[in-house]
Structure formats: C-alpha cells, structure tokens
Design a protein around this nucleic acid. Sequence first.
DNA 1: GAGCACTGC
Length: 860
Amino acid sequence: MSSETERLVGRLLDSSQGSVTISSTSTSSAQGVKQPSPDGNMSRSVSALEINPDKDKLNRELKERQEKMKARESLKAMQAFREKLPAFKMREEFLKAVAHNQVLVVSGETGCGKTTQLPQFIMEEEISSLRGADCNIICTQPRRISAISVAARISSERGEALGETVGYQIRLESKHSAETRLLFCTTGVLLRRLAQEPELTGVSHLLVDEIHERGMNEDFLLIILRDLLPRRPDLRVILMSATINADLFSKYFADAPMMHIPGFTFPVEEFFLEDVLEKTRYNIQSESDNFQGNSRRRRRQQESKKDPLTEVFENVDIDSHYKKYSTTARQSLEAWSGSELDLGLVEATIQYICRHEGDGAILVFLTGWDDISKLLDKVKINNLLGDTNKFLVLPLHGSMPTVNQQEIFDRPPPNKRKIVLATNIAESSITIDDVVYVIDCGKAKETSYDALNKLACLLPSWISKASARQRRGRAGRVQPGVCYRLYPRIVHDAMPQYQLPEILRTPLQELCLHIKSLQLGSIGSFLSKALQPPDPLAVQNAIELLKTIGALDDKEELTPLGRHLCTLPVDPNIGKMLLMGSIFQCLNPALTIAAALAYRDPFVLPINRKEEADAVKRSFAGDSCSDHIALLKAFEGYMDAKKSGKARAFCWENYLSPVTLKMIDDMRMQFLDLLSDIGFIDRSKGASAYNHYSNDLEMVSAILCAGLFPNVVQCKRRGKRTAFYTKEVGKVDIHPASVNAGVHLFPLPYLIYSEKVKTSSIYIRDSTNISDYALLLFGGNLSPGKNGEGIEMLGGYLQFSSSKSVLELIRKLREELDKLLNRKIKEPSLDISTEGKGVVVAAVELLHNPNIRYHSGPNS
DNA sequence: GAGCACTGC
C-alpha cells in the first residue's frame, strides 16, 4: 500500500520536484528553466534578482523573462489550452475590475478556470506593466491538496519549476522562493500569518477561493478583511465563489461589484427517484408491509422524528402528481421513506447502468462506513450481474485504507467497470476523472453543535442543492454523464440552497482564542460582524471553556497561559497538554498524543478485518484502559519499525495508516519547534531533561487530565457493570471502537476524554481511566465542599471526601503545584527542576496509588 | 456495538 501512497503523493506534488519542505527552490530542475537569460544562465540571473535593490531593473528582468518564456515553442500548446478556458475571454474585463475596485466578487462554475487563471492574469499583468517587483499575490485554498496542485499546474503553464514565481505554502510544507510573486496557501496558513503581519503589509492582491463552501477559516478571514480594507487602500481583494451565492458576499462588502464566468463541463443528464424507479422497475418495500392501510398515513402519525423534506414529499398526492408514471413506480413512491437508505435500490441502479448504459466508472455517494460496507457485501453476495471479473468495486472513505491508493484513480482494464462507493470525500477532496455515472443518495453525515447541551453531533441529513450540484458535476469531467438521484425531484426542490456555514455548526473555543491572539477586540462584538454570526450561547460556551482551562481571565483577556496557547496551532485543550507535558517531563507522550488528537486517528478501519483491527488496538493499550496510550504505543512501535526499515510492514500488520503516522511525526517536530520558540524547551539540555516521566503511566495520565479537563466522565458501579456520566448531558456510552468499550470494571473512578459526539447515542470516542489524584492535582480548580466538608470541582459536580488531614495534604500539594506552574508559565525559561523537584516527586508518589485512602466520587 | 469532510508561520 505504501508504494501506492508514495506514487499518489508524488503525483500530487508533481514528482519531478521531489520531496518538499524547503523555502527556496533550485532553478536547475524541470521544465526548461535552464533557458539562458541575458546575464548568462537562469540561476545566476535569479541570484542577481535577490540581491539587486534596484526595482526598475528587477521589474524589467521579470518582464523580459516572462516574455521569453511565453515565446517558447513548448508553451504554445499550453497557451492554446489556456485560451480555450472561459476565464480567458474575461481577462481584460477582470483586470479592469481589479484595477478599479478594492473588492471584487467573481463567481464561476467548475471548469471555468478561475482558480488557475485569475491569479495568473494578475501576475502577468503586473509583470508586464513593470510592477513585478512590488507584486505579491496570495491565493488561499481551503484544502492542502488544492494549494499544491493548483500551484503546480500554474508553474507548468508558465514553463517554470514549482517554487519560482509561483509557489505554495501549507502546514509543514512549502515551496517558494525570493522570486515567488504568486503564493498559494491554505486559509489556515494565512490566518496564522496574520499574527505576525496584521495589516498584510507587502501583500498586493489577496484572492480567497471557494468561499461559497462557507468554511470557518474563510468566514473568519472575511470578517478580518472587511475591517482591514480601510487601513489598506492599496490592497486588492478578490473573492472567488461558485455562482450559487455570490451576491451574499457582494452585499457583505458594501455591494462590491460581481463578475460571472460561465463554466465548462460536459452536460450531465439528471434523473430523480421517480425516473429511476421507472427505469429499474425496482419495487420499494414499505417499512410496514404488514400494516393494513396507507403506510404514508401511518408514517404521518409517527411524528417523533419528522424531517421537513420528507414531509414535503408525504404531503403530495402520489396518484395525481405522478400520473404519467407506471403503477409500479407509483406504488414504490408510496412506500418510499426518506428516513432510511434503500440499499436494494442503490444496487438495482448500479445494475441498470451496467446493463443499459455505456462504459465509464460509477461513483456512488453514500453517507458513511456502514452504508459502504453493507453495499459492498450486498454487491458481492448477489454477485452483481453474475461476473465479478467485469467489476472493480472500491470503497472510498477517509478512514479506510483505500483512501491513499492509486487504484481509485487508475482507469480499469477494458471490459472492466470501476464502481466507487464513496462518502462526500469524493465531492471535493478526491476527484476521479473517469466517472461518467453518479448515483446520489441525497444525504451526508454532517456535524452540528448543540449549544444548549454543549454537544457536538454527527448525524445524517439531506444535502444542500449546492452539494447536489457538485455531486452531479462529478459525472461530467471527461465526457457527458448521467446522475441518478435516489430521491424525488420535489425533495430536491425543497433542499436548502446551501449547507449551514461551519461557524454555526462547530464549537468555537479555538476561534475565540484566535480572535484574542490577533487582538481583534471583544470576542462577542467581533463575531457579531460575521456574515452569519454564531449563536451567542455557543460563543458564551467557548468563552467559559477558555476561562475554565485558564486561558482567559474574568475580563476575557488572555492570561499568560492563554498567550502561550495562541502560538500553538491546535485546540486550546491540546495546547495545554503540550505545555503540561513539557513542564512535567512527559514530553514525548504529550507530543505524540497531541499530534494524533489534533490531526486524525492513525488506526484505519478496514472493511473485512475490523475484529483484527480492534484486537490490535487493544493489544497496544495493554491494561492501561486508555485509547491515548494505545495511540502512543502504536506510534512508538512505528518509530521503532522505521529505524529498522520496516515501517510499511508494521503499519500493514497493525492496521495503521503510514500517511497519518508520517504527518503525526512531522507535527511533533513542529510542536517541538514552537515549544522551543516560546521557551518551554531548551534544546541544549537534550531530550532526557524533558522525558523523565515519559514511561510513567500515572504521570502521563495526569498530563492527559491536565490537558483534556473539563472532559471528565464519572464511572459509577451498577452491580456488575459500570455506567458513565458527564456533567453536561448525564449518561453517555463508551464508543464501541474504544479500547474501554466492554470494560465492566475500571480500576480507577474517572475517565478523561477528548471527544464526545452524539451519533446514534452520545459516545465518548477516546478515553483514559484516571484516578481521583490525577483530577485533584491536575484537573480543575478545587473549592471547599458544601457544609465545609470535602473538596469540590466543576461547580460541585465532582465531590471528593476524606479525612481532614488527607484533604489538607492534597490542598497544600495542589497549591504548591499551581504556584510552580504559574511561575513557569509566566517565565517559561525558568528552570524549576531543582526547586520543583520536591513537589513533583510528592505528586508522582500520590498518583502511584499511595496508602492514603478516602471515599470519593458520587454517592454510589 | 460503530467511525462525513477539512484545517494550522
């Protein structure tokens, strides 16, 4: 698998460029940059550019080079291709609009060339007008892969190596140089850069792409830009969006002018459920077949989980609305329920295409792992069309091992049809060129945030019209295509225009911290300026959390801890884990666990071997009762295997993703650099100075507790089983994929967790079993219990009781620890190893199951 | 007894 992965990555990076993470690129590689220039060879002229302060000369040189390059025979074909793009016809109009307006909104459909051509037009124009030296164009992209691939594409259109005039920068990876005039970066990179460069000094043009997707970073950037524009009258901002809601952005920027570029894709024919039923003759079984009478009416009576789109359909009179359709189709429509996906219908549609349509890959949009897995089984069991050699059925899901495999992109051999069963990863992140048929189930899993219960949710819901359009477009990339929608047209017509923006669907603590770090004023008033301001309760929850972990004070100002957290590009809780890990000499585990939590789970979820994958994860956890320790051990195993050149085999045998582990490894290095920058690490002291307790499970758990608090679960004995409770939502379940699922009796009374998500139930996704002492010493603030007895935490939700002397000891120790911590955080370079030793050793002793016993936790 | 998708000088 790894070789495929490397090939894929190589392909994306334009393999001729080799691997990356450099900031200046040699000009001697790839497409023809060796072309002699007036001063001799190109590389000499480049170094001359870098040291030459004479702008006129630089302007002239840039222009000469551009003209020379354009005249080259090898670029003629490329130029002809560019001139065919719809964007090309708008070149002059676009440049005029940019020259005359500070903000311009450009809308365009896929295939119009807006992302590759518009930034390039600006650069060419600036260079031609002898303004090349002062031109510094930035174009943001929401995804890492598009930042790289667009930069690579433009470089080759210009006949240059990537990193010359066109470069890119994404987290942990960049390719640009002193001569770079056009930089593609992720929106996140630009937002980080704003901390150093709040006025974007030196940037001449900023293009923000894909704003119609309404990602949180993009919405955040737009608020900042609107405030910045009056202070930067020379800055030009170009907002790029799909056609669908361009006027929303124009209005937000004081009716900025809009420009539309028509798209070019092949036509895609569209069928809805009623047509699909007519074609396939598939018979939908009602969920209540035995029930006497009208099933639709029966469903109407089940008012519990009514969704408005299904309701729209149920209010239609089938016989009159669908009178042109056959009786069978009408009967099926009668039985159709929007609440459950009918896999038989999906299969029948696949079969119909295979029997009646021409060649071409089929892409099926499903909601998740479960659908994909079940459909895969069904197709295999039913031996689709009788001949398995004729079909290549591939699952495609972010957590499945296939996600990094080349097979997805390859054209299958003749007479073999590729069928990809995908989530909405195939909507914009992964593009499969040879798709001709799309089957759209109309739903996707979507995160939402329940501010009232402070609960993140992940539930299937109807997609937006924008998504539906995007899915359909996936069929028309190489030739005319067909899209089969497994829902009625009237349901489509009732779909919302766009998905709810991410800023309204997500917890906001990280965003709030970012607002403070960029000194954008009060959190509440800043966010009220958003395109669609988030629920004040969601904002309040975020602020409260930041106060609870000690990042903000009562006046919502950053504390010393909060200021450190701003420099770490992770969720504030994870940032705190990193700081605590470095202070309490558990650095390596903190780096690994923080990186994995911030990025993604390295364990893959193979479709056929989930039991084996489960068992492997459990074996990594040992008897720690901790998913975080399982992560840690898996990563350590990977690093050991890597040393002996066996990383691939190790990943394969242990159901781990090599790509994810590599990213985790790189992120650890970034964290180390940042911790060193802010003074928490002194590299001259060597790694051992920060890892004294790295193999001490109790201490590592305590650091997890320090970072993840207030995410605490109480484990209450209920006979032979254990029940789990959190402060916010009461009873919760341990996620079945957790190593703690099925554990009936925990050695310790609490779990600390990083993620609680409502899906089919409220699940704790990953957890670590911790003691009272971990909470008392490293958790939230202690307050005196009611009646002056015991100790409380989380406003009385957690209660600890013991003898006066023990409680007094704990209070004292905690006080000393806090003092030490506060001094260290105010002055990170302070060496506390000597003066703090006594306190830390005492804490470690207490964590190691001491003889001191007391009753704790809830009355059980 | 179950895992949409992104992102970070």
